[in-house]
């Protein structure tokens, strides 16, 4: 008899895991709360480190889902999961009732709500946007302009917004924002060669393959400037210019600067659904609010509840490469479990 797995979350982790499992002759239910699969990546324009279009990723993942073993339930939210005779009974808001052998949680992350850092002026000043907003603008293909329609002359990219910030309630590093800032800065410069770009960072974490290279490219080829200092606050001038305050910690002096636009590199925080799901299933969370693994080294994909597995950013911020790898390893762990 074919075994059945429910994957909750149709972002890239859920999609990749679904295709791997389906190829191993396991029946997969891919449950996605939205109409479209692809999650956050579906809303991104281009990806680091090689500037490839995000749509390539989602398209190739979607193609791999063309398999009879996969049933996609879009616009579906899981309302309850109960354990019955070694099986899981999954109930949804569409009044469906599935019996499955294992569950893979791949519900991902939420973006940090930049309104919470009021001192940065998001939602108060028109020309303060988030990295996600910028990505939408880039995807739209129009020329990047300020709210009043002018071409910006100077842009500040602010790292660590909602990451590594006890005051915002999140200690952890979101891992992707530093490299995203570099990527987006280069993209802006490619489109607007005269714009000055300043990245305000606390530490630059260029740890991944190819990251350091594009950081260097950003400096050498694109003239992007890096200021080691955390933004304390932003204010608005009468003419709509934004005044930012930071310390240039390397020269040891406070720094003031008028910019036309601020891009807040919002971090990855645990999804609202993660804690609800954890509560419903009795799964442990770690201190940062993501799902915990009992063993840091060997425990990836495994939760404290047998039969329930994780893939992707439900456990920690990850890059796309890491997410794909994590999804494959999750598929392997599920196979071992239900075999």
């Amino acid at each position: 008899m074919t075994k059945k797995v429910a994957i909750i979350g149709g972002g890239i982790a859920g999609m990749e895991a679904a295709s791997v499992l389906s190829r191993m002759d396991i029946e997969v239910l891919l449950i996605e709360k939205r109409q479209q699969l692809g999650g956050h990546v579906g809303e991104w324009d281009h990806l680091f480190p090689n500037f490839r279009p995000a749509s390539e990723i989602t398209r190739s993942l979607l193609n791999a889902l063309q398999n009879n073993n996969i049933k996609i339930c879009a616009n579906t939210v899981v309302t309850g999961i109960a354990r019955k005779a070694g099986l899981f009974e999954v109930k949804t808001n569409q009044n469906q009732n599935f019996k499955v052998d294992g569950i893979l949680l791949a519900t991902g992350f939420d973006l940090f709500d930049a309104h919470k850092k009021e001192e940065y002026g998001y939602g108060i000043y028109e020309n303060v946007i988030t990295s996600a907003d910028l990505e939408k603008k880039l995807k739209g293909g129009n020329v990047l302009t300020t709210a009043s329609g002018c071409v910006p002359k100077r842009i500040a990219m602010i790292h660590c917004v909602g990451s590594r910030d006890e005051k915002a309630g999140y200690f952890h590093c979101s891992r992707v924002c530093c490299i995203t800032a570099v990527k987006q800065a280069i993209e802006i410069r490619q489109k607007l060669p005269n714009v000055e770009i300043f990245c305000f960072y606390m530490d630059l974490r260029m740890y991944g393959k190819g990251f350091e290279e594009i950081y260097r490219e950003a400096q050498e080829k694109w003239g992007i400037q890096f200021v080691r200092g955390r933004l304390s606050e932003a204010g608005e001038n009468i003419d709509g210019g934004l005044q930012i305050k930071s310390e240039d910690t390397l020269s040891g002096r406070p720094l003031k600067m008028i910019v036309d636009m601020i891009v807040l590199m919002v971090g990855m925080v645990p999804a609202e659904s993660t804690s609800q799901m954890a509560k419903m299933l009795g799964i442990h969370l770690s201190g940062d609010g993501f799902i915990a693994h009992d063993d840091v080294h060997f425990g990836s994909n495994i939760t404290n509840v047998p039969g329930i597995f994780t893939a992707g950013t439900i456990t920690s911020p990850m890059t796309i490469s890491d997410t794909i790898a994590d999804a494959r390893s999750a598929a392997l762990k599920i196979c071992e479990y239900i075999a």
Partner: peptide, 14 residues
């Protein structure tokens, strides 16, 4: 971690 936020916002440092 010497991020400098304190100095940037400081009323006296202003």
């Amino acid at each position: 971690i010497s991020c400098g936020g304190c100095t940037a916002t400081c009323s006296a440092g202003n």
